[in-house]
Design a protein around this nucleic acid. Structure first.
Lengths: 210, 210
DNA sequence: CTTTGATCTGACCATACGGTCAGGAAAAGA
DNA sequence: TCTTTTCCTGACCGTATGGTCAGATCAAAG
């Protein structure tokens, strides 16, 4: 569509094409699943010949792995919203805000992750056992500290985390269902604001943080 | 494995084989997705020759459709737990119990449904637009009535329903992740009880029902 | 027993898929 | 300019897939 006529430098070419392919792959993997996605379709979406994909990514699986990895890193970065906070209302509220924002901006990434985990995490099992486990333990400890300090109700920190993940990611993974129930149109700005506020209100009150 | 040596009657043969195939299909579709599932694998899991599947089900898509339909009906039946109730705590509490129980007993069905919706509901779009929409409106009205009667906090009924779906189904759809974080073993009876209680407590308190 | 219609299945087919490769085009370096 | 390296791609390949079909098998009706 909008092709830059300027000749590209070597570095730019590689960076641009890899980004183009990853973007197309995220979309196709999200819409069709790993098994249903085809390299040909990804190539078409990216606007490149199929053989060109295999120049940058050795195999379908390797391309998929990169897509999943990218999403995971986005989520990890969002978790920092929880850290600097003094109170649970602040920390968990900011985390909900950040995760709802990701659900809106990266619904496809969220879907690819969900699909991967649902199928038994064949590709990112090591991440679950290392990075995610450590992350979870750290945050559970933080929540437990808040509980011990009497700043919130004595809930099970692990199940609270599951609720946070489930609820926020639902707006990405099930956005088609939500859209259908919304009269066939996506949530607009005000509705996303309302959704985020609803989630924050219900969860924060549910854990006695407000 | 446990084959009944007794000769089967005609009706029994059909009913038994269809059930066998549907059960195998649910498992394979859940583990591999629609695109990744193969009729050969479903046949192997069912212990039947592949050609026999096509005797009972005309196509892979038709078999898939039946699997999705079955799950949907299970969920609809569970919704009745919400109806007879007097108070929100009773009604929503019973609904959470029922949905958590389904997540434990039918994790594969839940995954197939999630996968179908994530991929844009190509097969069950009509269900979303008719049955599910009507169901949602009915329950939202019921919740609104409770709010108007001052029995619970004024939350947005629709977002409450999303939270209920998201949280309960998370224990089925992401059971692999939960299992990994649980030291690699599935939740036992006590842990399922604790999970259900946690969810009930947080949500019911979150909506001011207790 | 004979007939009938449902059940079953090995062998087969057309297609689509992931992946390869030889060789051309283009940019960077000398 | 000439050489080298990277980038690009049409054509091709082996394999696996969903689906078909003719004919065997078997329960039940007459």
């Amino acid at each position: 569509m909008t092709e830059s006529p300027r000749p590209l430098r070597r570095n730019e070419i590689r960076a641009q094409n890899e980004a183009l392919i990853l973007q197309a792959a995220e979309k196709v993997f999200a819409e069709a699943g790993f098994g249903g996605a085809t390299m040909q379709l990804i190539a078409d979406v990216a606007g490149l010949p199929k053989a060109n994909l295999h120049y940058y990514f050795a195999s379908k699986e390797q391309l998929y792995r990169q897509v999943v990895q990218t999403i995971f890193e986005i989520w990890l970065a969002a978790a920092e919203a929880m850290d600097g906070a003094e109170t649970p209302a602040e920390g968990i509220g900011a985390y909900i805000e950040a995760k709802m924002d990701i659900s809106r901006r990266h619904p496809n990434g969220s879907k690819v992750w969900a699909s991967e985990v649902m199928h038994g995490a064949p590709v990112i099992q090591d991440y679950l056992e290392t990075t995610l486990r450590d992350w979870t333990r750290g945050r559970a400890a933080l929540i437990q500290r808040w509980i011990d300090e009497g700043r919130m109700a004595p809930v099970d920190p692990e199940h609270l985390l599951y609720m946070l993940w489930a609820t926020t990611q639902h707006y990405a993974d099930f956005n088609h269902q939500i859209e259908t129930l919304n009269g066939g149109v996506p949530l607009d700005d005000a509705q996303w604001r309302a959704a985020t506020d609803s989630v924050k209100q219900m969860i924060l009150r549910g854990i006695g943080a407000i």
